[in-house]
Nucleic acid binder design. Structure first.
Lengths: 157, 157
DNA sequence: GTCGCATAAAGAAAAATATTCCGCAAGCAT
DNA sequence: ATGCTTGCGGAATATTTTTCTTTATGCGAC
């Protein structure tokens, strides 16, 4: 892993449609070695997948809600069940187990507040939760899938 | 926008490397009309971009922190300045203006707690903030860039 | 009904791109 | 120096995308 790999990752994080030949030019390689590096990055699991990102507005996903959850049962069993339930909801796009006084945090995408309420009702019908607190995002100021690469560990500079 | 478009979007959200011919087969079209639909979805801005998603572990981004921010100055000026500052930090991958008693919410990705502290110091050096509260994610249970398409409005079913 | 028009599909051809194959050069241990 | 490993590059090949042209279908005006 060196500077060139990092440059490749940076560019692919921005736009994965770029042709290997163009990418190669930008990082100062010819297409073959560049192509091989990309393959390796995929094999090694550094590149997890390539996806299309949609415009939330255009697919009726205007509202983002952060849902803070506290639970009574801190057992593995409960978490397993909870994870499965959450997995079934495409509205939940992020799901973290947290430190601090909130046990779990969800990010939920829905068209409007009514749809959020419907989601909420469905959720609490499926599994018991001690405490749920919802906070609505008014504006999405920044959202990126690009991870910071400055911290990456390089073998060869 | 019809069921076929939705199927195309669903598949491209999962994996954008799929060949148009294969995609076409899956949605029951031949390559040309399928290709044209994809073009249109891109023109219309439904498909925003195509990117490579990296494995956070492999690029030294093991720690996710949610940062709740409250401010004194609720002016446009301050927000503009704040947005610019945040924009400079690649560690901040999400940034929302919120309802409720928290004004802004950040999601920050860093290698470890020390790096988070360094980020925090840099941030508060650049702009004055009334109150900052950091909560660490212990585990990322679900993370997807796939938006729910069930809510999408279809002209033709 | 049928004519003309608009929309969407399909097949084949052309262009662009990805992938493979082979040889060359540099670094390094023996 | 010799042999080995690693990484690069150019050319050939295979795939895929993109364009071009044709055909089918639905629909309103007459």
């Amino acid at each position: 892993m060196d500077k060139i790999d990092r440059r490749i990752l940076r560019l692919l994080q921005e736009d994965s449609t770029i042709a290997v030949a163009d990418l190669a030019k930008k990082v100062g390689l010819s297409t073959t070695p560049c192509w091989r590096r990309i393959q390796k990055l995929e094999e090694d699991g550094v590149i997890r997948k390539r996806v299309a990102l949609l415009n939330p507005e255009k697919v009726n996903g205007r509202v983002t809600v952060f849902v803070s959850i506290r639970t009574n049962s801190h057992s593995m069993e409960w978490l397993k069940r909870f994870s499965e339930v959450i997995g079934e909801f495409p509205e939940v796009v992020e799901f973290y187990r947290m430190s601090g006084d909130i046990d779990y945090l969800l990010r939920v995408v829905v068209p409007d507040i009514a749809a959020y309420d419907a989601f909420y009702q469905k959720l609490i019908a499926k599994i018991e939760i001690r405490d749920v607190s919802s906070t609505f995002a008014m504006e999405r100021i920044k959202y990126t899938t690009e991870l910071p690469l400055d911290y990456m560990v390089l073998d060869k500079p």
